[in-house]
């Protein structure tokens, strides 16, 4: 389980996250939604142990999240996540050497499914192919928690569609949980169990997507239009 307890984060004097608490169990796909700069990336980085909360605690399986929590957590950054001198194959081999839970066979499968050329240098890959490769590197780990920061951002619809399909195919919801941030809400909504809505660093709502459909007859986007304007 991932557990955030009264977590706040301040950069210099600017408050980015204000007193957020929530838990995430295994076996779910969770979306974190909110406007630009609302603190979505910060939350993911804190769970990955790459940022420390100013106050409060973040734990993964009961362990305080420091950078070496990476043995339980697979993190995809919204930034470029590669050593550019690697080829696709070398990047995958390097990831496999660093993470003992990395499933090479699964990586090969996802790579083939994403139609990536293994001999191409990363510095020569298109943005769409770099986005695909990030997914291969993150999704091929047999790890309980996967965190993806804007996995669909800046990619064309074909690639976005392939990535969403890849998540459905290769995520094992019996043993894994995926938390992702995204602006492409309509594309991820059908695959989300729950969503966490953030506004100005505060938690506005955490609920099951189906519950929102059932109780208010709204999709996430329509609900946000209402809730964020108030």
């Amino acid at each position: 389980m991932i557990e955030l307890t009264n977590v706040s984060k301040t950069y210099k004097k600017r408050s980015v996250i204000a007193n957020i608490s929530f838990t995430v169990p295994l076996g779910k796909i969770i979306g974190i939604v909110g406007e630009n700069g609302s603190g979505k990336s910060t939350i993911l980085k804190m769970i990955a142990g790459l940022l420390q909360p100013t106050t409060g605690t973040v734990t993964v399986n009961g362990e305080n999240a420091h950078r070496r929590i990476s043995k339980h957590v697979s993190y995809l950054s919204d930034r470029d996540s590669f050593y550019p001198f690697f080829t696709v194959r070398e990047a995958i081999a390097y990831q496999a050497s660093q993470f003992s839970d990395f499933n090479l066979a699964k990586a090969e499968e996802i790579m083939a499914y994403m139609a990536l050329d293994p001999d191409k240098k990363i510095s020569a890959l298109s943005k769409g192919n770099r986005g695909r490769l990030k997914i291969v590197l993150t999704l091929a780990r047999n790890v309980p928690y996967l965190l993806m920061d804007e996995p669909l951002s800046g990619l064309d619809p074909m690639v976005r569609h392939a990535i969403v399909k890849g998540m459905i195919s290769y995520l094992d919801l019996e043993t894994q949980t995926l938390i992702m941030t995204s602006h492409e809400i309509s594309e991820i909504e059908p695959i989300l169990d729950s969503f966490i809505a953030i506004k100005d660093g505060a938690l506005v709502r955490k609920t099951e997507v189906e519950h929102l459909h059932e109780s208010e007859g709204l999709g996430i986007t329509d609900w946000m239009k209402k809730a964020y304007l108030e």
Binding site: K45, A48, L50, R67, R68, S70, K71, Y75, S77, R79, D80, S81, F82, Y83, Q98, F99, S100
Partner: peptide, 13 residues
């Protein structure tokens, strides 16, 4: 330049 890449790693610092 891509610190998460280096530090998101189970090896000790």
């Amino acid at each position: 330049g891509h610190l998460h890449l280096w530090l998101h790693n189970p090896q000790s610092a």
